Computed example of a mutant assay.
Amino acid sequence: MSLTPLLVCDDSSMARKQVLRALPADWPVSVTEAGNGHEAMDAIRLGLGQVVLLDLTMPEMDGYQVLSALRAEGLAAQVIVISADIQEEAVRRVLALGALAFLKKPFDENDLRQTLSQLGILTEPGYIPQRNRLAANPIISFHDVFRETVNVAIGRAAALIAKVLGVFVQLPVPNVNILEVGELHMALTDASTCKKLTAICQGFIGSGIAGEALLMFHDSEIADIAQLMQRQSADYSDLEMLLDLSSVLIGACLSSIAEQIDVVFSQGHPQILGQHASIDELIQVNRKRWKKTLAVEISYSLEGHDIRFDLLLLFTEDSIERLTHKLAYLTN
């Protein structure tokens, strides 16, 4: 029985493990893993990627660049994109670049099997023991699991923002760190002084998990945002507009994280820092809870516009243990 060379490319070891677990047991494949686009191209050139399951948002070389490189080099590979970037424009672009199908994260075994069958890729059934596919079976860290959870959430939020503003949102790779309160204070102070910013803060809590979402807009970009939102009335102030946009972005991120970890978050009223409170006050109020903070940094940018949203999700120290427990099933 011949084995189909299958390449799984994703910068998250958690995501790669999920894909390997979802492979049909009766599909005879030999698996190669890649953590970025450069590794993927090297493997495909060696003949290790007849079928490629490809992520989009990766450092160094992303999925779009891989698809473009495959076309430029004339390399034959059957590519299925598996991504958290579910913008309609993202799907259109990858199909135009030669991908055969698009699966949104998170997906399940049935989604993958159905797609492989429809494309005529799932052929020559024969049982392949799972141990041959997961020989390394790496232990996945909390950091990687949580980053992939956030990755799905920011993709959902980007799709909503893309519809509201009528633009293509360029997704970042989220930055996840555990910061001491002093480091957090320094980071927020630097952010607040480097440029004129309008920062909107919104607390959230649920099932023993609590924190603050902090969304920062550069004041020089507010007029461009208003134009994209097609503001019709002079009575609709800049702050009202930013609060509405914050509600969409923060709400979508938090609801997606909550759904994935099976909790419900209650969200407080948004506060405009500098008007209702300062960053210093935010730190002082939460100093006891934020001895160590799980900090998620996300920087969205809008294609064709000099506009960037910087979102910080700050989880209290007590939340880390609860989140670890909630995500434990994914680390095994």
Rank of each mutant, 00 (worst) to 15 (best):
D310F: 10
L67K: 07
I272S: 00
G208W: 11
I283V: 14
Y127W: 10
L70P: 11
L243I: 10
G35K: 10
K104V: 12
R287E: 11
F265G: 10
D62R: 08
D85G: 07
T32H: 11
A213H: 10
H218L: 06
T193R: 10
G166K: 03
V81G: 06
I154A: 03
H269D: 04
L70A: 12
P129Y: 05
E317M: 13
R131T: 13
R71P: 01
R287G: 01
T149Y: 02
L242D: 01
G208F: 12
P270V: 00
A40P: 13
R133Y: 13
S30A: 09
T331Q: 10
I44E: 01
D224P: 04
E183F: 02
A77N: 07
H269T: 06
A157S: 15
E148D: 15
S68P: 01
V91I: 15
R93C: 01
A34S: 12
F204E: 13
R45A: 14
S256L: 04
D310M: 09
L122Y: 09
V8Y: 02
L214R: 04
V285C: 04
P106I: 04
I283A: 07
L184T: 01
L134P: 01
L3H: 14
H218D: 13
Q18D: 06
E321L: 10
T316D: 15
D85H: 05
K105Q: 12
L116N: 09
P106R: 04
D62G: 10
A199V: 03
N110P: 03
V29A: 13
H276T: 00
M58E: 08
D244K: 11
T198M: 08
